Simulated assay, not measured.
Amino acid sequence: MKKLSIKLLAVALGLASGAVMAQESPWLVRARAVHIDTANKSDPVGGVGAANLIRVESKTIPELDVSYFLTPNIAAELILTYPQKHDVTLDGAKIGSFKHLPPTLTLQYHFAPAQTFSPYVGAGLNYTRISKVRLLDGAGDLENDSWGGALQAGFDVKLDRNWSLNVDVKKVQIRSDVYVSGARASKVKVDPVLFGIGVGYRF
């Protein structure tokens, strides 16, 4: 009986050890190409009834995000990039540019993390730092900071134990007051939809 108990204990320890080794790391890193499709809604410059509308260009940028799985289904994701430059137009004519750095933190729910196809949804907070504003030959300016919500949906397709393909869509709230010669002239709602595709690596 004693020998049998020792053998059973050894088998149990072996199975437990194998289960621990089979567990995935909680860290997932992705690199994406992201197209920023700006909503481009603004108050008319000059007040109600004016036709002068400000537009911020759409563009494609590189993005890096880091996810940490708190549970097999719930993950926190930090979305990063470097400061991006956007041209600004007024009724189709370029009036300058600015740079923005928009780190975003979301909490996600992954519906089938152990499956080859794993969809997810997320929600969180965006902080955008606006810098190097050059509008109207120095007469124009923007707020330095923007806080807003973020919604997210996407899916991962596993290629092997570590690598996966990723498709991701986010709606981010980015807004700023526009000043001309120190006076508020308009409010720009950039509010972009971000379409991303890339690869992920699970450590």
Rank of each mutant, 00 (worst) to 15 (best):
L13V: 13
G14A: 15
G14I: 08
L15N: 11
A16Q: 12
A16T: 08
A16I: 01
A16P: 01
S17A: 15
S17R: 07
S17M: 13
S17G: 14
G18H: 08
G18S: 15
A19V: 01
A19L: 06
A19Y: 01
A19D: 04
M21H: 09
A22D: 09
Q23M: 12
E24D: 08
E24P: 00
P26R: 06
P26I: 02
P26L: 02
W27G: 05
W27K: 08
W27I: 13
L28S: 07
V29F: 11
R30K: 12
A31K: 05
A31V: 11
A31S: 13
A31T: 08
V34E: 10
H35D: 02
H35F: 00
I36F: 11
I36L: 15
D37L: 05
T38H: 01
T38N: 07
A39H: 03
A39G: 08
A39M: 06
A39V: 01
K41D: 09
K41P: 00
S42N: 08
S42I: 02
D43N: 10
P44W: 01
P44F: 01
V45G: 06
V45H: 04
G47L: 06
G49D: 06
G49T: 02
A51Q: 10
N52I: 01
N52E: 12
L53Q: 14
I54V: 15
E57H: 03
S58A: 07
T60W: 07
I61W: 01
I61T: 12
I61L: 10
E63Y: 03
E63P: 05
L64T: 04
L64P: 05
D65P: 00
V66M: 13
S67C: 01
S67T: 05
S67K: 10
Y68K: 04
Y68S: 03
Y68R: 04
L70Y: 12
L70W: 12
T71I: 09
T71M: 11
P72I: 14
P72M: 14
N73Y: 00
N73T: 03
I74G: 07
A75L: 07
A75G: 07
A75K: 07
E77Y: 00
E77W: 00
E77N: 12
I79L: 13
I79G: 03
L80N: 14
L80A: 14
T81D: 15
T81I: 03
Y82N: 13
Q84C: 06
Q84L: 14
Q84E: 15
K85E: 15
H86T: 06
D87E: 15
D87Y: 01
V88M: 10
T89R: 15
L90I: 07
D91N: 15
D91G: 11
G92W: 11
G92Y: 06
A93G: 02
K94N: 14
G96T: 02
S97Q: 13
F98W: 01
K99T: 11
H100D: 14
H100L: 09
L101V: 04
L101N: 08
P102Y: 12
P102L: 09
P103W: 01
P103R: 10
L105D: 08
T106V: 11
T106N: 08
T106R: 03
L107G: 13
L107Y: 05
L107V: 15
L107H: 05
Q108L: 04
H110K: 06
F111H: 07
F111P: 05
F111I: 07
A112G: 02
A112M: 12
